[in-house]
Nucleic acid binder design. Sequence first.
DNA 1: TAAATAAAGGACAAAAAGGTCTTACATAGA
DNA 2: TCTATGTAAGACCTTTTTGTCCTTTATTTA
Lengths: 144, 144
Amino acid sequence: MFSKACEYGIRASLHIAVQSEAGRRTSLKEIAFATNSPEAFTAKVLQQLVKNKIIESVKGPTGGFEIDRSRMESIKLSQIVSAIDGDDIYKGCGLGLSSCNEVCPCPVHERFKIIRGQLRDMLETTSLRELAQGLKEGMTFLKR
Amino acid sequence: MFSKACEYGIRASLHIAVQSEAGRRTSLKEIAFATNSPEAFTAKVLQQLVKNKIIESVKGPTGGFEIDRSRMESIKLSQIVSAIDGDDIYKGCGLGLSSCNEVCPCPVHERFKIIRGQLRDMLETTSLRELAQGLKEGMTFLKR
DNA sequence: TAAATAAAGGACAAAAAGGTCTTACATAGA
DNA sequence: TCTATGTAAGACCTTTTTGTCCTTTATTTA
């Protein structure tokens, strides 16, 4: 469904969100450990998220990554996904045709439209804040 | 969503289905042309489908690929997808965790379960026959 | 039975994704 | 102002996916 980079990106964002909610800035090393992700590769992904202004970074001692508490509700999964994987998942044809649309649909066009619409809706309405909430309460996990 | 190999596989199967419905056996060359796919690569994919008994092949002059008319209704998209891409798309965790389940769910587990269930249902209920029907009627397309 | 045709199979090449390493840059704190 | 700490950036490596090519095998037909 998503690329590895995107999976790491979402997991990392969630760990940063939980920590930021508690007023803590978290380092790459902590993130990689907490999400069981390769450190150097995660660093690349985090760079992309910083450039897309989804998370913030601070260099030097006491530095690390954080997310503004006031923005957590407004950051949706869809933003992370498009920042890393682009929006092929929303737009692309299920059978890979370059121009598949209502006028000239592929055989699965209508059926895929429904599924993709639901996926899109889910990603666009799910915020970092609500997902971080479940993690904080120990209901959900980022490892294993 | 699907790999390129899987996209080619579905497109090829549909072209074979339409031709078989009309009582015609079709060759690799025709399939590649009709679906706008790389010929040699498509050949590999077709081999997999033959091994999985989704399509049949005949060597030599007048040879080619075909699908038994009586089986078209019972061949579902899900069979082609699992033959080529495996069933990660049904089973895998949305965030890539190796053991994500009801007991130990990732933060998006519940939300993904719904989407994946709908995708699965769509793939398991959509038959080659009904998709071939739309193609035959000129309502849908395999190219562009 | 020889020639022509078409799929099967294996080796190989190119591109993309995934992942590592080293150096540069910024900054807090002694 | 020096040092330690931590992110940024770029070069590089590995694996997987995508794609090609060439030889072998099976089968039809002249």
